[in-house]
Design a protein around this nucleic acid. Structure first.
Length: 480
RNA sequence: CGGGGCGUAGCGCAGUCCGGCUAGCGCGCCUGGUUCGGGACCAGGAGGUCGGAGGUUCAAAUCCUCUCGCCCCGACCA
């Protein structure tokens, strides 16, 4: 069927690249590590962006824009931050034909420049909380790029907030993590596990890092969003202080949180199949594609007219619909074209349908010719939105079912090592280990502690590596 | 930076070991016609510094030296 796409089971990494090429999501760039996001891939990002942006606004955040260039000395102010980012910085040394007095770092993230500004803008407790977000590109020099998942330049959103108290900042950190979780479930049809990162996986400069972890089609984990409690680390480095009710100077407590174009990769790998991309209706740039079928000129005009009317009616009902009225390719070609691109619903409209007063429909998540069904012309506008909701729900349920089927438990490290050889996916373990155990785990099995889920079932057990008693379980998995 | 693979038409490749016809094949592209309910068919056509530089030779895609780049697997990361 999809002759240009390697089957997932044969080679998942190759399948991923094939889908990106065939669906025209992205292309390689002349600069290693960078990628060109093509219009269709960018349209998916726009859907992600618009959905999230609305959620940020609804939680009281405002958008702003901070500069791409950051004085190198800013990065150096927070000890852990420098250490963490130094290896992946791009640094500009020349401008206007002259060597710069101070090199400029191309932002890898904006905590430093934003704190520089916050320290000017925040004077008293009345200025707090400050809740900002920016949509921007960032650069982190990558040794091993992968389209969407890890590129040297990527697009993202970074929220930065300042609060009077630790409690408020911590609560903001968790609130935004839950916003990501809701976006993933409701828009991306992607179940995720919100959890706390171990110190080893923590953001450089944060007190605590939380993430949402999603399971890809091959059982690997993908960190799909992060939220950090920064404490007063950057506030101290940049002297971001406010005067409290008692006329005393206090450092602000901060959070930062982000998701990136990596989410596009997540959607590909969570939902895609051997025929290509499958998009949840919420994120699909085109939700319904209408393919007119005709032989004679008379048929063409009758069918074309009907197709245009259906399209208008659907758009009127808030559905993103499109007629593929190209004369230069056959209907069969169009079927594949839109299947590879993951469009949730296809309507075929030909003379036979018009005669019978119906359209022939098929849902991308129920592949195959036999799964086609018909909808009465009168019922299209009422039926399609219901179908789209159903597809959205089915795709989420399917992803949940696969994740659950590929999640298992191990009581001891030996058991983990024995089973993980044959079993992909997430392994739940009791965890009370430290950096040494994590290091050993990664060296010996290539897996890492993805997170310690926030939503624990309770109980107590012995840490699978150290044997020490623990009240929390962790997720162990291979990760991108 | 280590290990592996690859650079020949827009894309995918053969040809390279063992030097020798005018550098080929599939897809795509252009023109015309017939088609159109699951990637249509026929005929004609356009398209190449064989990644780059140097060398060996009567003769180099093919052999030698150097070089540039890309992809995959590992260490770092959203």
């Amino acid at each position: 069927m999809a002759e240009n796409i390697t089957p997932q089971k044969q080679d998942f990494a190759q399948w991923y690249q094939d889908v990106i090429r065939e669906a025209e999501l992205a292309d390689t760039s002349p600069v290693r590590g960078c990628m060109v996001i093509r219009p269709y891939g960018y349209a998916i990002w726009e859907r992600i962006r618009d959905n999230l942006d609305a959620r940020f606004k609804a939680t009281g955040h405002e958008n702003a824009y901070f500069p791409l260039f950051i004085p190198q000395s800013f990065i150096n102010r927070e000890a852990e931050h420098v250490e963490g980012f130094a290896p992946e910085l791009a640094i500009v040394t020349h401008g206007g034909g002259k060597q710069l007095e101070e090199p400029l770092v191309v932002r890898p993230t904006s905590e430093t420049i934003i704190n520089h500004m916050f320290s000017k803008w925040i004077g008293s407790y009345r200025d707090l909380p400050m809740l900002l977000n920016q949509w921007a590109n960032v650069v982190r020099w990558e040794m091993r790029p992968r389209a969407f998942l890890r590129t040297t330049e990527f697009l993202w959103q970074e929220g930065h907030t300042a609060h009077a108290t630790e409690e408020e900042a911590r609560s903001e950190t968790m609130r935004m993590l839950r916003v990501y979780e809701a976006f993933a479930a409701e828009n991306a049809a992607m179940p995720v596990i919100p959890g706390r990162k171990t110190d080893r996986e923590k953001f450089a400069g944060a007190v605590e890092t939380y993430s949402i972890e999603a399971m890809m089609g091959n059982g690997w984990a993908l960190q799909s969003g992060t939220s950090h409690y920064l404490g007063t680390n950057f506030a101290r480095a940049f002297n971001t202080r406010y005067l409290d009710e008692n006329n005393e100077q206090q450092y602000v407590h901060q959070s930062s949180w982000g998701v990136s174009t990596r989410l596009v990769g997540a959607v590909i790998m969570v939902h895609g199949d051997d025929a290509g991309l499958r998009l949840p209706p919420e994120l699909s740039p085109v939700q319904v594609v209408i393919v007119p079928i005709s032989r004679t000129d008379d048929e063409r005009s009758a069918v074309g007219e009907a197709a245009a009317r259906i399209c208008r009616d659907l758009e009127g009902a808030g559905v993103r619909a499109k007629v593929d009225d190209r004369q230069t390719v056959s209907p069969g070609f169009k079927f594949h074209h839109w299947e590879v691109r993951g469009v949730p619903v296809r309507l075929e409209l030909g003379p036979r349908d018009l005669q019978a007063g119906v359209v022939t429909a098929s849902a991308r998540n129920r592949p195959g010719r036999d799964a086609k069904f018909t909808i009465g012309l009168d019922a299209v506008v009422s039926e399609i939105p219901r179908r789209l909701s159903a597809i959205q729900r089915e795709m989420f349920e399917e992803a949940v079912a696969r994740r659950d089927a590929m999640t298992w438990e191990a009581a001891t490290y030996d058991e983990y090592k024995a089973v993980s050889g044959e079993r992909e996916g997430f392994c739940r373990v009791w965890w009370a280990g430290g950096p040494d155990e994590e290091e050993r785990l990664q060296q010996e099995t290539k897996a890492t502690i993805r997170c310690i889920p926030l939503d624990q079932e309770g109980g107590e057990g012995a840490c699978f590596m150290t044997g020490r008693p623990s009240r929390s379980m962790a997720i162990v998995a291979r990760a991108y």
